[in-house]
Design a protein around this nucleic acid. Structure first.
Length: 328
DNA sequence: AACATCCGCAACCGCCTAGTG
DNA sequence: GCACTAGGCGGTTGCGGATGT
């Protein structure tokens, strides 16, 4: 071995830059089936021309099903500020106290919003107004649901609006361990997020005096409370939604994607009404380059019955069972 | 309308650390 | 204790959309 650190992979052999939907699906499908015990070997096995690190990052920061997505709430921002006071730039540490948020996301929010805000706040501290920080990144709009993943919470923890329906079955014993969720009218809502939000609100309300022990305790409880379903990704779904409605390129791959979507995610028919057809091409996605089929694993392998799936805590929106109201 | 600038965020880079032999 | 590997982490970059001129 020569001097210096060996590169984690051969940069000339791997694709870089934004991930395509097809790459995402391959990664998701592979991780769902085989897990990610070895990121280094994963790309080759999954038929991805990506560095293992890149796959790991993509999974952790974007594809992981338990990600919350959407804008940060004022409470979350305040939590970040408090945790940053305690831990400094230990983003992963901070992220560990904020389920559904990634260290990268928190880091970005800090660098782009909160740092500036704190500077302003400090310079204005003579004004004496120590009221809550006004969130510049929180969209208050209640008209968004699936797009922003900001799901308004009603007292009953059930959300029924227009064509959207989420059923949250509360355990009559109060353990909150059983969740059900539904997809109606081609819209998907993340019920776990509703519960997540509720718990977080309780959790945050207990944070007034910033009790780290309390946070830790809640976090432990959180792990046992929530089973998180596959969370829809707007761009991905939007892309998939429009597969077949545009040009006829990559027809084979599109049909595979469609199969995966229908068989694995339990979604049939249109996924979402596109408000604006100019949005058809998702932001930040590239046109997928063909991957050598001899290198790639057989995509059909990943299309399996629910009984074959064992994702532990990570669960896709699996095809509904006979009674059409699956329990997670 | 065209161009310049700003801003947010996904992705990359390289160092650090833990695990293993 | 050392060498090596892979995963994790924090800092940084660069693309693309939003906004300003």
């Amino acid at each position: 071995m020569g001097k210096g650190r060996a590169p984690c992979c051969d940069k000339s052999q791997v694709k870089r830059g934004p991930w395509s939907p097809a790459e995402d699906l391959k990664l998701i499908a592979f991780v769902q089936k085989f897990g990610h015990e070895n990121w280094r070997s994963l790309p080759k096995q999954a038929g991805l021309q990506r560095c293992g690190k890149s796959c790991r990052l993509r999974w952790i920061n974007y594809l992981r099903p338990d990600l919350k997505r959407g804008n940060f709430t004022v409470e979350e921002e305040e939590t970040i500020i408090k945790l940053h006071e305690a831990f400094g730039n230990k983003w992963s540490k901070i992220a560990s106290y904020m389920p559904g948020r990634t260290d990268n996301e928190i880091k970005n929010v800090w660098n782009t919003h909160l740092k500036k805000k704190l500077v302003i706040k400090n310079s204005d501290s003579t004004s004496g107004d120590e009221s809550k920080l006004e969130s510049s990144i929180t969209s208050p709009s209640s008209s968004e649901s699936i797009l922003s993943n900001e799901v308004p919470i009603k007292d009953s923890e059930k959300q029924v609006s227009n064509n959207e329906l989420v059923i949250v079955n509360e355990d009559p014993k109060g353990s909150s361990n059983s969740l059900s969720y539904s997809i109606e009218s081609n819209k998907i809502l993340n019920s776990a997020e509703i519960v997540d939000n509720k718990i977080e609100q309780q959790h945050l309300s207990s944070l007034e005096s910033y009790d780290i022990d309390k946070i830790l305790e809640d976090m432990e409880n959180l792990d046992s409370l929530i089973e998180i379903p596959w969370e829809s990704d707007y761009d991905l779904w939007n892309f998939i939604d429009n597969i077949g409605s545009n040009d006829q390129s990559n027809v084979g791959e599109e049909s595979v994607i469609q199969d995966v979507v229908e068989n694995e995610f339990g979604v049939v028919g249109e996924i979402k009404e596109s408000k604006n057809k100019e949005e058809v091409q998702p932001k930040n996605y590239e046109v997928e380059q063909e991957i050598d089929p001899h290198e790639a694993f057989d995509f059909n392998d990943i299309i399996m019955s629910d009984s074959e799936l064992d994702f532990g805590n990570i669960q896709l929106w699996s095809t509904f069972s006979e009674n059409n109201s699956p329990n997670v």
